[in-house]
């Protein structure tokens, strides 16, 4: 009886303020989409870091035949220079930093090159002599790139020392910034969601003042009087959260996996499982929003 009655009151309330209910749903939808987007971007960044930092290497490119670098004035790196660099990399001084060293000769570089650009017409004309030999160094801690760089930069026979991380870092920085922007927008939208839900509950409470007045008079408990209003806000907000989850799911499926993953292939993209990972968070935020709004409003408008 109680439940049935509360549900029917709830239905009346939702229908009576239909336009307000819809606007609450839309505002929570948009704000939680931003919250979710910020979360997904963070997950993406973490995933890229995990995936790449394990694989990134410091490349020590040795002098090719005709290089304009001053350290390459003597021409192509000699056997002795190459040996010396290899020994130093495997030596005691660098042992705490270096995990693995791998020498890529010109022929190795040529093979890797041909494999990578097998489909390109211009790859045919490239010969092994046009490429350069290099040492590929995997570090224990990828952050310690500077140590290796300091040792080998400026040495005769070394053209340049390059950290692959420097290629990735700008991308991660962009993603981090984007997730900050999304979080900022989310904060603003969340605030407006709270205000809107507050207004909705207030309107709903005012339009049913007659009912709540009689309820108080005949001795209905506070919870019983307030529950329909609270549920109204909570249901609208939860529908908004569900829409946000659906929106993010479609975004990840069609935008990230079907489109980005086809056009920019070297990035390890997040999948829809990431959406499910943040979905409970979004629903929790929605319910929290509604709860805050209810507490703020109802204590003032349906007092005993």
């Amino acid at each position: 009886m109680r439940l049935q009655f509360i549900l029917s009151e709830l239905g009346i309330g939702l229908r009576r303020n239909l336009s307000m209910t819809v606007s609450v749903i839309l505002v929570t939808f948009v704000s939680l989409t931003f919250v979710g987007a910020a979360g997904l971007l963070q997950i993406q960044v973490d995933q890229m870091k995990d995936d790449w930092y394990d694989r990134v290497e410091v490349s020590i490119f040795l002098c090719p035949d005709q290089s304009e670098q001053p350290t390459c004035a003597a021409g192509e790196a000699s056997e002795e220079q190459i040996e010396a660099i290899g020994e130093e990399l495997r030596g005691e001084a660098l042992e705490p930093y270096v995990q693995q060293v791998y020498f890529e000769s010109k022929d190795d570089a040529y093979e890797a090159f041909q494999e990578r650009f097998a489909d390109e017409w211009w790859a045919e004309g490239v010969t092994a002599d046009q490429l350069q030999a290099s040492y590929r160094v995997a570090l224990v801690d990828p952050e310690q790139y500077q140590v290796v760089s300091d040792v080998f930069t400026g040495r005769q026979g070394v053209e340049v020392v390059r950290d692959q991380r420097q290629v990735i870092e700008p991308l991660i920085l962009v993603l981090n910034r984007a997730s900050l922007v999304a979080a900022g927008l989310a904060a603003i939208m969340l605030l407006s969601a709270v205000l809107l839900i507050t207004t909705t509950i207030r309107l709903s409470a005012m339009s049913r003042r007659r009912e709540t007045g009689i309820m108080r008079l005949v001795g209905a408990s506070n919870l019983f009087i307030q529950l329909p209003f609270m549920l109204e806000g909570a249901i609208a907000a939860t529908i908004g959260a569900a829409l946000a989850v659906a929106g993010l799911w479609f975004g990840v499926t069609y935008l990230v996996q079907d489109w980005l993953a086809q056009s920019v292939q070297f990035v390890p993209y997040i999948g829809t499982d990431a959406v499910w990972q943040i979905a409970p968070l979004l629903v929790a935020v929605a319910i929290l929003l509604a709860a805050i709004s209810s507490v703020v409003t109802l204590s003032r408008y349906t007092k005993v």
């Binding site: 007659r210 007045g213 209905a220 506070n222």
Partner: peptide, 20 residues
């Protein structure tokens, strides 16, 4: 929180009826 129980012991009628 006990006020509702008090009010269940009291019926009230007003000049303006207060019907829904």
């Amino acid at each position: 929180w006990k006020v509702p129980h008090l009010r269940r012991q009291i019926g009230a009628v007003f000049q303006d009826f207060r019907l829904l």
